[in-house]
Amino acid sequence: MDLRLDSEQDSIVDAVAALLRRGGRPPERARQVSGRLDAEALRRLDDTGFLDVAGDGSPRGHLTALLITEQAARDLVSAPVGARALVAAYTGVPDPPRAIGLAFGQRSIVRWGTDVDAVLMLDGAAVRLLPAGEVTAERVPSRMTYPLARVSARPGRGTLLGDGAAARMTRAWRAGLAAEIAAAMTGAVDVARAHVTARTQFGRPIGSLQAVQHRLAEAHVQAQGSMWLARRAAWDLGSDRQAALAAAYAASAAGPVFDAVHQVVGAIGFTTEFDLHLWSLRLPVLAAELGGPRAHAAAAAAAQWPARAQGPARG
């Protein structure tokens, strides 16, 4: 057990951050590419090999792919980094295209769904890779900060991946999702923290008020918990339990963290001139993905109490 980034991981994360920030500071860049896929950022990551770090299939490789996913989300990159670096790599997609959308079922909402090269569709016990031409993707108008599309495919289309692909894809997706949620939470808490430190009411910074401090402190705990569970799940990517626990914790904390960060910043949090929404409005989208918190939590329970897994369930 050693929770420090080693020098290689540290330099990879630093290099990814530097590469991504070449396109501008994260909030400015996010506003420039608002509503579309940031193909340039994805290309740069691909050209430098950062989307292929999970290649050797080792725990270390998976963790590195997750750390890159986390950093990209922290920097508001508008591109499916984890879908390629972690999910497609671990699921065993041969020659994966650069921009991959992740779909849950034959008809679902997919981030960047109109802009991706291909869709990796988790369809019950099957996983299919569908080139963009084989799916129908309709843009879904939304105030959320990701470009969203309703993606559907007719049964039987695309390339069916081999045995075990569905379980592998589910685990990697859950781990990556938890990392993206953790990163969005951390970014949002940071913006809120800076605001309450500077904002004065009643003659004092509102961040000195205990009611404000405690809400942000709880959000910090949930962001940190999500981050560590995601990293742990990536290391042990063969474990259904770890992946489900990470996603369950992060997805269920997303709502409370959203509420907390918006509560402490007040009305300015509703303006698009203020940076908070760039991170916070990612949370509802991520929390709902892949079945949402109840599905992740029920999966964790099924892994913990397998006897019950066959029986009827209310959850």
């Binding site: 705990v221 949930q222 940190q224 918990g225 999500s226 560590w228 569970l229 742990r232 770890q242 489900a244 626990l245 990470a246 369950a248 914790y249 269920s252 918190p293 109840r294 599905a295 992740h296 939590a297 029920a298 999966a299 964790a300 329970a301 099924a302 913990q304 109490w305 006897a307 019950r308 897994a309 029986g311 369930a313 209310r314 959850g315």
Partner: peptide, 23 residues
Amino acid sequence: AGGPQDRAAAGQALAACEAARML
């Protein structure tokens, strides 16, 4: 039943334990 009636709630409680462990 030998397992949870409310699987989602039970899974969330387990997740809370594991988050505390990692922290």
